[in-house]
Design a protein around this nucleic acid. Sequence first.
DNA 1: CGTTTAGTTGACCGTGCTCAAGGGGCGTGG
DNA 2: CCACGCCCCTTGAGCACGGTCAACTAAACG
Lengths: 246, 246
Amino acid sequence: MSPARFDGTPVQPVVRRLNALRSLSAAAAEALDRALRERMRCADAGHDLVSEGDRPERIRVVLSGWLCRYKTLEDGRRQIVNFVLPGDICDSFVYLLPQLDHSIGTLTPVVYSEIDRTQFEGLVATDRSLAEALWCETLSDISIQREWAVNIGRRIALERVAHLLCEIVERLRPIGLWSGKSCPFPVTQMDMADATGLSVVHLNRTLQELRANGLIVLRDRMLTINDLDALQDTALFNPSYLHYAR
Amino acid sequence: MSPARFDGTPVQPVVRRLNALRSLSAAAAEALDRALRERMRCADAGHDLVSEGDRPERIRVVLSGWLCRYKTLEDGRRQIVNFVLPGDICDSFVYLLPQLDHSIGTLTPVVYSEIDRTQFEGLVATDRSLAEALWCETLSDISIQREWAVNIGRRIALERVAHLLCEIVERLRPIGLWSGKSCPFPVTQMDMADATGLSVVHLNRTLQELRANGLIVLRDRMLTINDLDALQDTALFNPSYLHYAR
DNA sequence: CGTTTAGTTGACCGTGCTCAAGGGGCGTGG
DNA sequence: CCACGCCCCTTGAGCACGGTCAACTAAACG
């Protein structure tokens, strides 16, 4: 947790993501940048950043690393309901709610910033473009959540897994983590299973089918896609629900 | 579409729902009330209020009737991703997005109000309690959407259908449409199937199982639940994700 | 080196899907 | 008034997608 670990962790992914949704004023980008540098934190892989039932106090903004939002049923069944990538905000104005309805766990080591209520509201109050961008980010989150319902409810396993991969690629793109061919992919097969509503065994077989079809290469936590169009076709993927401006 | 059809359609469900999430000031409730009375509209059952791909211009607020948000895949598979009940807002600040990612269709005749952008922003700007309530409503919507992912991804058919019914009961309660024992339930089995990610045939059999277990009575578009605790138990239902203040 | 975690494979099984047909209620038009 | 069509619900039969259980491998780590 030494400050040294923050070296080289840029604060930009947030600005880049928000800008992809709705452009921020220069002043807003700068104020946000400053606020994010104030209270940076890190967390190891495999820990919960926040847990279901917690009273939310602060806004957290992910600067680097991957997390997932998940819920568990009494008997242990787990559903990952979304991934949280660099630049994502968890969540604007959460502290207005009495308690969290889900947990957020780290999949990798993570660097994030905390913003407390008064500082956050100060930021929002002084710049309209930031307030609008935050609404867009939230509307985009709901939209992603809706698409997950479609994915789990109406796509078959092969389409479902392909769709998950397509979404992640498109979300990594604006923050500069998609090279055009490949990206880091630090998600275990168990996580992917819990995200798609499949069993680990069947998820494994589905990945093999995607590999056999030449659609993906997935090795050593690295995902390579040689023909993204083909993968999108098998996923019935249409990126418009992400609401990124072109 | 004659004004007469609005007679007796109260504007209160919105205020009641928002108040259940976060209390509105008297001034905000009154201003909202006035705004909603300005441009009331109706729609017949079986029509789309808005469609995927539309450019959203106005905020719509449902005063009476049921709708559903849904998406369809190219080949016709349909997933209902949420129901829209009286008092629900579709959606705060949508017009910030370039286009809608899903459609909203009516299940019954519906009365709703339209609020245009400038009027809406005027309302929000002048009362902090309203702005906060709208954030709460939106956060609650995301939360519901997450729970749907869990429902479809990790609950078996019986639990899944039971959970859907439990959620609807709890959402009808604050707007006064749950009598304590029963409520209107104008949803066809096909709609329920599309909401739970099941086939119509299996949904039908699942409903019969719930009936056989004495958990529900569902006839003539009317749902009766004699032992709500028992239904919630079989659904693994925990209402906290709705974020209603007690 | 032993232990743990992640990935893989095989065999079997069951939940839920598909296809198909029939019934009941209701509105419409002849 | 009756006939027809349509929508919604229901039932049966067969099947397949995906789940469960179990065992094994390989890599990572202390």
